Amino acid sequence: MKKLIVIILTFTIILTGCSTNNNVTETTQPENRQDLQNDIGDSSNTNSNIPDNINTAGSLFEKGYYDYQGTINNDITIRMSLYPLEKDIVGSYFYESQKKEIDLKGKAGGEDILLYEYDETGKNTGVFRGSMDTVDKIEGTWTSADNKKNYPFTLSLISNLPGAEYGKRYAIAALKASDQDVENFINKVQDYVMNNKKEELSKQISYPITVKIDGKATTIQNKDDFIKHYDKIFYLDYKQVIGSASTKYMFANWQGIMFGTGSSNIWINELTATDGNQKLMITAINH
């Protein structure tokens, strides 16, 4: 009888152990997970350890575009443009070496800023978490979406377009042309300069125009005059500046849209053509 009880107890323990092992196997199976969402603070985001409870009421950003230049990991140069849209901060950035814009969306408070980046499919690819005393400088850490890479970043404000409507960065100087129209025009001008397309470039200029030739202010009256003096206007060093200048996030005011760096620049304006239509034209060439 005792032997029978022992056998029964042993058999029961074995069955219980098998049942427990089966349960462990079932609960440790991987679950299906959706792609990261575009909403800030979504629990599916792998950067959920970064707080998103920023008090946006204390944001230092006011209506308008804020354009920055800086680095990631101290040696990778980037450009970034931010805009406070309702309670969010939206914008984009690009690596100087690639020129491909990456979308940003996040939040900003009195001291902190949190910006998630997204690829063309809307998938989160990283996050900027920074701090600032003023909007002039932002410093912090960039983290990859899988939390495996962390690099310091720093951004310095290089221009601001206060009061500009979202999506109408250049409207103060180009009311009819869209932002994309302006940037397409600048890209075309840059291509003409870098490839010595003198004839094509001469058609984009509003004459007369005053330029410096051999250090002296000289008035260029027409296309033929421009082509004649082209090599002295667009000399090698000046062409290199124009060729490396960003065709995005450009400064604009009532005088026009500035393309270039420092005192070496080209100014664009929207003018009324002879047929009555508005047309983007070069109105100043400075070096």
Score class of each variant (00 low, 15 high):
residue 217 A to S: 13
residue 255 Q to F: 11
residue 103 D to L: 15
residue 36 L to Y: 15
residue 274 T to S: 14
residue 253 N to Q: 01
residue 17 G to T: 03
residue 268 I to Y: 02
residue 89 I to T: 04
residue 239 K to L: 07
residue 169 R to I: 05
residue 146 D to P: 11
residue 95 Y to A: 08
residue 184 N to S: 09
residue 160 N to C: 13
residue 91 G to P: 03
residue 173 A to W: 00
residue 197 K to G: 08
residue 32 N to Q: 12
residue 115 L to F: 01
residue 232 K to W: 08
residue 223 K to W: 04
residue 287 H to F: 10
residue 215 G to K: 06
residue 281 M to P: 00
residue 81 S to K: 01
residue 204 Q to R: 10
residue 252 A to W: 01
residue 168 K to N: 12
residue 63 K to D: 05
residue 203 K to C: 06
residue 154 T to E: 12
residue 90 V to M: 00
residue 176 K to A: 10
residue 187 N to M: 02
residue 206 S to G: 05
residue 269 N to Y: 05
residue 121 T to V: 15
residue 232 K to F: 11
residue 136 D to P: 00
residue 136 D to I: 06
residue 278 Q to V: 03
residue 24 V to N: 05
residue 149 K to P: 07
residue 78 I to F: 07
residue 147 N to A: 15
residue 179 D to S: 07
residue 173 A to Q: 09
residue 64 G to F: 08
residue 199 E to R: 12
residue 236 L to M: 12
residue 243 G to M: 08
residue 227 I to A: 06
residue 56 T to S: 15
residue 182 V to N: 08
residue 53 N to R: 07
residue 209 I to Q: 06
residue 137 K to Q: 13
residue 58 G to R: 07
residue 244 S to Y: 08
residue 136 D to S: 10
residue 252 A to F: 01
residue 23 N to M: 12
residue 97 S to D: 14
